[in-house]
């Protein structure tokens, strides 16, 4: 009897404790949003949000906080990274799901996982050692632009490499979710493999593919160190890909912690963090809902 009681007691206590931990952890995201918002309120009280987002003048000491150059910098780096990575990642994931033999897959998959584990400072270091000189000495002269090499193009390229692993693994899952029968029917009708991929897998899965891409880039959006190391960090609206830019995460990393004496500055940087968080939140929730639907339809 006693033994039974202790076992039951353990069960009850453990389940309560686990519930508590689980509930607290899932609240973390809301706590973060609330915390950042409370701090950022200070600057939102002085200027309206559209004003802050669309003004180009960034002079913290004069109390002018225009986020426009930073937002544009972030968007440009991300768009360039998408441009470099989407075609190659889609092709690679199609190759891995449809064409590659089990042996090749078993060789390549761990390598891609390895790529995911490399820390961002190492990507940044590689960017400085390889991509920066490449852009400066070979690519930019080709187009007749003088550049230091620390520019949008370099940042976009390094970021593209960083999103390869996420993008490949998520889009692989999307392609894998296509029922085998569909593939076989298409092949039996005499379609080539590529036609099968194109008509039976890509077109009906277009939502899933877009979701995979969005998910990959919600990760890329906030990438800080690697981009910051190669993108130049000049607060201006860039007019070409060979010009330096200053993305939002780099702005926070470079200035937060030192400028605590100016409360408005502090609030402005936390507003930048809040913006990053909210953008990532919207994109990743949207993408996940689409992906979940696909999963459900298949299963």
């Amino acid at each position: 009897m006693n033994l039974k009681l202790t076992r039951k007691l353990k069960e009850v206590i453990a389940s309560r404790l686990m519930l508590l931990i689980t509930a607290l952890s899932s609240m973390l995201i809301f706590v973060m949003i609330l915390g950042l918002f409370l701090k950022a309120r200070l600057i939102l009280a002085t200027q309206s949000l559209p004003e802050l987002l669309l003004s180009t003048s960034w002079h913290p000491l004069r109390g002018e906080f225009g986020f426009y150059p930073f937002i544009l910098g972030t968007i440009w780096v991300t768009v360039l990274a998408m441009f470099f990575s989407i075609p190659s990642c889609l092709l690679t994931s199609i190759y891995l799901t449809e064409y590659a033999s089990a042996k090749i897959r078993a060789f390549i998959k761990p390598l891609i996982d390895l790529l995911a584990g490399i820390p961002s400072v190492v990507y940044g270091l590689w960017g400085i050692l390889v991509v920066v000189p490449l852009v400066k000495d070979h690519i930019a002269p080709l187009f007749g632009y003088p550049t230091s090499g620390y520019c949008l193009l370099t940042g976009g390229f390094v970021l593209a490499i960083m999103v390869f692993p996420v993008l490949i693994s998520v889009s692989e899952e999307v392609f894998r979710a296509v029922p085998h029968e569909v593939r076989e029917i298409s092949l039996a009708l005499g379609a080539t493999r590529w036609q099968t991929v194109k008509h039976a897998q890509m077109v009906p899965r277009i939502k899933g593919i877009i979701a995979a891409i969005v998910l990959g880039f919600s990760r890329a959006f906030g990438e800080t160190m690697a981009v910051m190391m190669v993108v130049g960090n000049v607060a201006q609206v860039p007019s070409s890909v060979f010009q330096p830019a200053y993305p939002l995460p780099a702005l926070i990393a470079n200035n937060y912690g030192e400028m605590m004496s100016i409360p408005l500055y502090d609030a402005a940087l936390l507003l930048a963090a809040l913006l990053l968080l909210l953008i990532v939140l919207v994109f990743s929730v949207g993408a996940r809902i689409v992906l979940l639907r696909i999963e459900r339809r298949v299963v």
């Binding site: 952890s25 899932s26 609240m27 973390l28 995201i29 973060m32 915390g35 950042l36 998910l215 919600s218 990760r219 959006f221 906030g222 990438e223 800080t224 995460p249 926070i252 990393a253 937060y256 940087l269 936390l270 963090a273 990053l276 968080l277 990532v280 939140l281 990743s284 929730v285 996940r288």
Partner: peptide, 18 residues
């Protein structure tokens, strides 16, 4: 699960600032 997945995507600089 959704809330943890979102947290997974939160940029590390945001964790740092927060």
């Amino acid at each position: 699960r959704l809330s943890l997945d979102i947290l997974w995507g939160v940029p590390s600089i945001v964790y740092g600032a927060f």
